[in-house]
Design a protein around this nucleic acid. Structure first.
Length: 422
DNA sequence: TCTGGGGTCCTAGGACCC
DNA sequence: TCTGGGGTCCTAGGACCC
């Protein structure tokens, strides 16, 4: 555990760089990758997921609304993202990392941690590895896809170090330099301190890591519970999670540690409507589409869900949500939909215009199959697996429920009285 | 026609039981 | 008749991440 060496690799303007690599027309231009919205070609109700370096120089930032980004930079090219393409390239660069160490932890689609303690021997060796990774990335993925790399004694610090030199930097901080380095960082630079927390810290008169180090640990614990301990340790540059396997995913979360997990804990989809609506039928139609998407992912990954949560967000951005348990775990989209709608129709206020609809399932278990004891369910299960085959072959547009094709058609042809019964 | 979509985990308060 | 307190489970909401 002691004296380990970690490399954090963060791809620069990842989605934008991928598109610029693929399309020479986009190179050197201010572009912003947005959420993919088939029904909204103008991307009006979207945000910037990634800005190219050129766009960043003009002030375009991640999470800015496309509306605001366009206002700031009228020549900005809005480009709908392609998550599957990015995931594919992510797989490629993680395969490159595996050439250097088997202890690779995919933190997100564009960030990974590598434990190179054994392979590198010391920090100089780790620097050589980082440079070699750079070269391999360029060979495999093209010269426009670049990374910021930080090298330090644990994952949290490696990330902080890497982020200090964006874009496209390579920085090593030796253990004896660590505290001096930390003291050059702002509190909100640390992964785990967001806007709310930095505000609370400021209110307590804590503006720097040095002040947190000098603060009484008991006081921090009293104020923040276990988060206080985490703050104190972080301010000392300490964090002690490890990377075990060759295929690890981690998340840095508010339990103040890197947690590893093999299987998702929840699967959900939500959708911002092209226009706010008061029409329950419209809400139901989106809810059914989302339910089918969630169910498809469950079946694809061999999972069943025992809990479903449905939620809406209103035009004023307030929202409501509620969850319920199933008697039997399920991966059936219509079953998910029925339960989600049962929640929503009781929960949401029809007086308020709805902006977003969402569904999420949790308490996942490995399935499916054993729970389908009844003939009716077995029949439905074979229908679903036939539909899944279509979807595997033709993608998401492979099949659609009749009820979603044509409003006039639906109540008669569907046989389940979509617009009346529920 | 301002503010996406995918996640993780923690916490506080209510219900319920002994 | 009056009404404690501890433990556990559930759940809505919030904070954080990319």
């Amino acid at each position: 555990m002691d004296n380990r060496i970690y490399i954090h690799i963060d791809m620069n303007s990842y989605f934008a760089s991928v598109e610029q690599q693929a399309n020479p027309f986009l190179r050197g231009k201010a572009i912003a990758i947005t959420g993919k919205r088939e029904d909204d070609q103008e991307q009006t109700r979207s945000i910037v997921t990634t800005a190219s370096i050129e766009a960043k120089m003009l002030g375009v930032k991640t999470a800015m609304s496309t509306w605001e980004a366009k206002r700031l930079c009228p020549s900005l090219i809005l480009y709908p993202g392609d998550p599957e393409k990015y995931a594919d390239i992510t797989r490629r660069f993680n395969a490159i990392f595996q050439e250097f160490t088997h202890k690779v932890d995919e933190f997100s689609v564009d960030e990974s941690f590598l434990d190179v303690t054994e392979e590198a021997g010391d920090y100089l060796g780790a620097t050589f590895i980082a440079q070699a990774i750079r070269t391999r990335l360029k060979e495999e993925c093209g010269e426009r896809i670049t990374a910021s790399i930080g090298i330090g004694p644990n994952k949290l610090m490696a990330k902080l170090i890497g982020e200090s030199v964006k874009p496209n930097g390579l920085t090593v901080i030796y253990p004896h330099e660590l505290l001096a380095f930390i003291d050059t960082c702002k509190l909100e630079d640390l992964c785990g301190i967001g806007p709310r927390m930095s505000e609370r810290l400021r209110e307590l008169g804590l503006f720097t890591f040095k002040q947190i180090r000098e603060c009484d640990l008991k006081r921090l614990q009293k104020e923040f519970n276990s988060y206080g301990t985490w703050l104190y340790e972080s301010a000392h540059g300490r964090e002690n999670t490890t990377i075990h396997s060759s295929v690890q995913n981690s998340s840095f979360t508010s339990n103040h540690n890197f947690q590893t997990y093999e299987q998702p804990k929840s699967v959900g989809h939500s959708y911002t409507l092209p226009h706010d609506t008061h029409d329950p039928l419209e809400i139901k139609r989106y809810l059914l589409t989302l339910s089918d998407k969630v169910a498809w992912r469950l079946r694809r990954d061999g999972l069943l869900a025992r809990r479903v949560k449905a939620f809406v967000r209103y035009g004023d951005f307030s929202g409501v949500e509620q969850q319920r348990l199933f008697q039997e775990p399920t991966a059936d989209g219509y079953n998910l939909f029925q339960n989600a709608w049962m929640i929503l129709k009781r929960l949401y206020n029809p007086e308020q215009a709805v902006r977003l609809v969402g569904i999420s399932v949790s308490e996942l278990s490995c399935g499916p199959g054993q729970s389908s004891l009844f003939k009716k369910e077995q029949k439905m299960s074979s229908v679903l697996s036939a539909l899944d085959q279509i979807q595997y072959r033709y993608g998401e547009q492979g099949w659609t429920r009749a009820v979603l094709l044509n409003t006039k058609l639906k109540s008669r042809s569907s046989g389940f009285h979509f617009d009346h019964e529920l």
